[in-house]
């Protein structure tokens, strides 16, 4: 009985904390949704009141006027390709960096990359991209996304690989598996939790990038979601309802991805790290 009571208070506290934070998250999000469904004159007159009329057609208008379909496709191409590169290059580079102390200087070299403001790279990078004919190509932006995000990815993987027991790897090597096979078959699956984290974190920055695509991918057919949404933002007169509707539409696919990852995430942890 005493055990039960001991467990009860933390649970109530958990519930309260989670619900409280949920409310804090939901209130601003509710403004976003209500701002999207209100007519512009109502939004100006009563920005915070419950909508008198629900203009769901704003979503349709946002979708078609900004060509969000095209935006989604382009954002998907850039984000997914960069993510795949980031996961594979990042995990594999992190392995020796975590395991061998003489690679530490290289680790710090990567790490320094996290700390650089992107603007510092902008000008020479633009010249380089022009030289390589990579402006207005998907490849160009994928390379930049990968290069800019790699430091953080390597930092995350290195940290987690350090925490994994070496015995498994050594056993596999004794079994005669090559080092690459050993890494991808034994170590990489153990990294699933951190891989999910890497994916989630980078989705957030890449899906929302505005500046890099504006600079390097201004071509109309290649326009991403964020550039498409910007077509509703004006210098003096923004179509706020359309902006908010477009933003909501743009994050829906990502929420779906998170829900899917969430399942794998839990499984990955149950089946991965604990074994080690």
């Amino acid at each position: 009985m005493s055990l039960k009571r001991q467990e009860m208070w933390p649970r109530i506290a958990s519930l309260v904390i989670v619900l409280l934070w949920a409310v804090i998250i939901i209130v601003p999000l509710a403004i976003m949704v209500s701002g999207a469904v209100k007519a512009p004159d109502e939004l100006a007159a009563h920005p915070f009141a419950w909508p008198q009329e629900f203009h769901w057609e704003t979503f349709v208008k946002a979708w078609t006027d900004a060509n969000l379909m095209r935006g989604m496709r382009n954002s998907f191409i850039l984000t997914s390709a960069s993510l795949v590169l980031l996961v594979f290059l990042g995990a594999s580079a992190a392995y020796p960096l975590a395991r061998r102390s003489n690679w530490t200087p290289l680790f710090y070299f990567f790490l320094a990359g996290i700390m650089v403001p992107f603007q510092l790279a902008m000008l020479p990078l633009y010249r380089l991209m022009k030289l390589l004919h990579l402006i207005n190509t998907y490849y160009g932006v994928i390379f930049i996304y990968t290069a800019v995000s790699l430091p953080m990815v390597i930092f995350l993987y290195t940290g987690f690989i350090k925490g994994i027991n070496r015995e498994l790897e050594e056993a596999a090597l004794v079994d005669g598996a090559g080092k690459f096979r050993m890494f991808w078959q034994i170590v990489f699956p153990l990294l699933k939790p951190v891989t999910s984290t890497v994916i989630i974190m980078n989705i957030m920055s890449l899906w929302n990038d505005f500046f890099i695509v504006l600079l390097f991918l201004p071509k109309k057919e290649m326009r991403t979601l964020q550039l498409s949404i910007f077509s509703f933002v004006g210098q003096y007169n923004s179509k706020l309802n359309l902006v908010l509707a477009a933003v909501i539409l743009s994050i829906l696919p990502m929420i779906t991805v998170f829900l899917l990852l969430q399942k794998h995430f839990i499984k990955g942890i149950a089946g991965g790290a604990v074994k080690g």
Partner: peptide, 17 residues
């Protein structure tokens, strides 16, 4: 799966209008 995603994305990138 990841390789398929990568290839699909690159293929899409290549056949872009």
């Amino acid at each position: 799966i990841s390789l398929i995603i990568l290839l699909a994305a690159l293929a899409l990138a290549a056949c872009a209008p």
